[in-house]
Design a protein around this nucleic acid. Sequence first.
DNA 1: CATATCCGTTAACTTGGGTTAATGCCGAAG
DNA 2: CTTCGGCATTAACCCAAGTTAACGGATATG
Lengths: 195, 195
Amino acid sequence: MIDNRLIERISVLGTERYAPKGTFLMRQGDHSDHFFLFRRGLAKAYYETIEGREFIKSFIRENECIASMQVIAAGNPSPFNLMTVEDSCILEIPGNTLTTVIEEEAHFSRALNSLLIQVAMKKEQREYELLCLSAEQRYSMLCTRDPELIRRLSQNDVARYLGITPVALSRIRNRARSKSLLNRERHNTNSPHKC
Amino acid sequence: MIDNRLIERISVLGTERYAPKGTFLMRQGDHSDHFFLFRRGLAKAYYETIEGREFIKSFIRENECIASMQVIAAGNPSPFNLMTVEDSCILEIPGNTLTTVIEEEAHFSRALNSLLIQVAMKKEQREYELLCLSAEQRYSMLCTRDPELIRRLSQNDVARYLGITPVALSRIRNRARSKSLLNRERHNTNSPHKC
DNA sequence: CATATCCGTTAACTTGGGTTAATGCCGAAG
DNA sequence: CTTCGGCATTAACCCAAGTTAACGGATATG
């Protein structure tokens, strides 16, 4: 996801860190402005309501990075939690280190540009899916686009990423199952069932 | 929304244009890579499904700008329509003009950075609302945050921005009305009814 | 081994939004 | 003036998802 040369450049600015599954790297309300680059593992960024409901913004994997725009750019407290869902290895860079480097070195600014554009495009896609697609459509799209992610996640977390409850996701999978069974009977195909 | 000095710098690159209400500035599927800066008026950026359903991504007002990331950064066709909903005055800049200027002049790159960060933060907020809030909560949040926008829009367009049908929005408003009536009777307040 | 915990599934019931259609209200065009 | 099209409202009906609860399987822990 992130340019290889950029990774090498950035590496010297931060420290590597091991975080077992379930570790909080950032907490909703924090002002910690760290920038995280994932070497290995998987984490979820999620909003938590006062009643304890959980909504997952995004997942971060190997060679992906995350920071809270709100914290870094606006100085607001982080609006979300960041927690590992697999044992992970992370490069952690203090926010101010990064911003000074970006201001001082032009090629970093250029690199940040393309990174931001990627982020914006991803967000645009996410907005599209949340706005225009039904939960079922979002699920089947995720299944085809990123089956590996689904394998690595619990169904609970998939559901909370899709914006529905685990019960609802179970029902959707059930419906899909009976639909594909029906199709198999009708057309007598024997394609193996996936997802 | 957009820095004043930046506006002046950019102005020389494009041409001003008048577009009456209902004009398409960009069409879903187009490869036109224009960058639009609004001087006056209001437009909606929206997705349209094959069945003709409409989902509004965002609105663009005075001193705000829009371009399709997909077109400019990835060369994809535009995923959305852009149509004025008020008579508007727009500064239109060809995409390649803008990109060459950004590559050649460092301060433009810097300015683009902060613009992209703003975009990303807005999208983050939108993602939060679509993911975590009910339609009713989204509506009341919009009412308090941006009452002016609601005044300028038809209820149809507000509904399609919230991701619901006009019928559903009418019901929500109805519920809110009877709720506030109830409260007025109970506490005998006489605050005027808004939105 | 027994126990506790977490996860996925299923059922029963509620609720919120979609769909369709009818109505009334403009404002624009003829 | 009349007519037409777009908009907001309301009603009736349907369906998808939320909520709660029960159950079974897997895994970890004593």
